[in-house]
Structure formats: structure tokens, C-alpha cells
Amino acid sequence: MAEQITVRTTPELESARTLAEGRRMHAISSAVRYALLAGVGFLMLYPLVWLIGASFKTNTEIFANPGFIPSEPTLNGYIQGWKTSTPYTFATFFWNTFLIILPKTIGTAISCAAVAYGFARFEFPGKRILFATLIATLLLPNVVTRIPQYLLFRDLGWLDTFLPLWVPSAFAGDAFFVFMLIQFLRAIPRDMEEAARVDGANTLQTLIYIVVPMLAPALISVCLFQFMWTMNDFLGPLIYLSSVDKYPVSLALKLSIDTTEAFQWNRILAMSVLALVPALTVFFLAQKYFIEGISTGGVKG
């Protein structure tokens, strides 16, 4: 009897066993995968975490304590750092950054959308050559144009103003963004624009009412890129701005290294953390559109 039962149940048991084994293997492999991902992720994130931790440490503790949790948390770095060693506080520098970013981002969005619309939707004489030129500037190393540009802006009397930092971008000077929008536009069928034209819209109305809303995800990506790149731009302000009262955040961070003999690292780190905040905030707010924009656009391939 017992034998009979064994005989009858062996296949079932076996299949159950293989099933359980499969499940266990699956669990193990997921665990390994997630552990690996989490590990690498933490490795990537560690400098940032350390930065935030260190910004709350005292200047002496930064080098004494390798961990990232401060033993005596203090806001000293933030308070002192904000005041800076100059007559200006960081509020001035943030405001300067804002004064550069705002016209640059808005200008980029408007001008690039218009130029991309022209290239993607219209036939005009010389289109191929103009487009080739556009792409060629994309491949040109920035360094090559630094000196001619400097001379140009000097002759215009724009040195030590914000103009050289945003005007070129506001006239679709960033070929990359134009290219990205063209690729995105190419993937959108023309029917909607044609329907708008039959509905009585002229070219400009079609652009504003139909094309721009459909381009929105790509435009948000463009703005976000421009925002982050401008926030992080160090070389541009360094070359064109000489008075401290016009410094943006990126230059001001370096200021605290220059002017003191013994570096106040806690202040620098505290201000670095603050400098990260706007970019991170904007990124997380726009993340959804940003991903849509770069994944449906041509940037991926």
C-alpha cells in the first residue's frame, strides 16, 4: 500500500520539486542581480552622499573622519559659505546664474523649435548645404572657436556682460538641440499640420498651436539639458566675466578656493550642495517628459 502511494506520487513530487527548485534558482538570481545593481548604484552615489554628509561636518572633521555621517553636525559651513569672503553673498551668485539661464533656456527653446521646424518641414534653396553646415558645427571642437568668439565679443563690447553667455544660444547656436528637435519632428506625421493649414492656420500659427505642443516632450528635454549644462558651465563665465559681482555659482565656488590660504572645505562643500539643488529639483520635476523626449527623439540612435 505504502509502495503504491509512493509509486503514484513520485512524478508529482518530482514535478513539485523541480518547480520549487526553479523558483529558488529564480529567487537567487534576482537576489544576486539586485545586490549587484544596488552595490554599483551605491558606488556611483557614494561621492554625492559623502558630499552631503561632509557639508555638515566641521572643517577639521572632513579629513579626520572617512565616514559620511558627521559626528557633530553643524550648519557652520552653510552659514559661513553663504557669506563668502567677498562683499557679496551667494544670493548674488545664484541670481547671476538665474539671469544667464533664463534668457538662454527660453531663447534656445524658441529659436531651436523655429529652426528645426524650418529644416524638417520646408523645402528651400540651399537647404542641404545649410543643414550640412549645421551638422558640421556640431562636430567642431569647442576649443577651436573659443578665440575667434572671444575676439568677436570683445569687438562688440560684450566682455564682462552676460550677453556672450546666452545670445548665441538664443539664436539657435546650439546645433545639437536643433538636430535633436529635427529628429523628433521627423517622427511626427505631417497630417496634423496639414489639417491645421486646411483649417486656416498660417505657418506661424501652425508652429505655435500644433507643432510646439506636439514637440513639448522634446522641448522640455532641450530646456533641461540647457539648464543643467549652463548651471555647470565653468569655462564660459571664466573667459567672459571679470567682475566678481557678475559671477555665476560655478565661478563663485572656485572663488572660495582662491581667496583663502587655508581652504575652508566645509564651506565649499556646503555651497556645492546648494549648487546641485536647482538642477536636481528641475530634473526630478521634469523627469517624465525628459525621458519621453530623449527616447522618442533621435538622440538614442
Partner: peptide, 9 residues
């Protein structure tokens, strides 16, 4: 139009 061409937004 064949694909309706409604304004998606």
C-alpha cells in the same frame, strides 16, 4: 484625413 489627423493635445 485617412489617419484622422486630430490635434493630439
Amino acid at each position: 484625413f485617412q489617419n484622422y489627423a486630430l490635434y493630439p493635445h
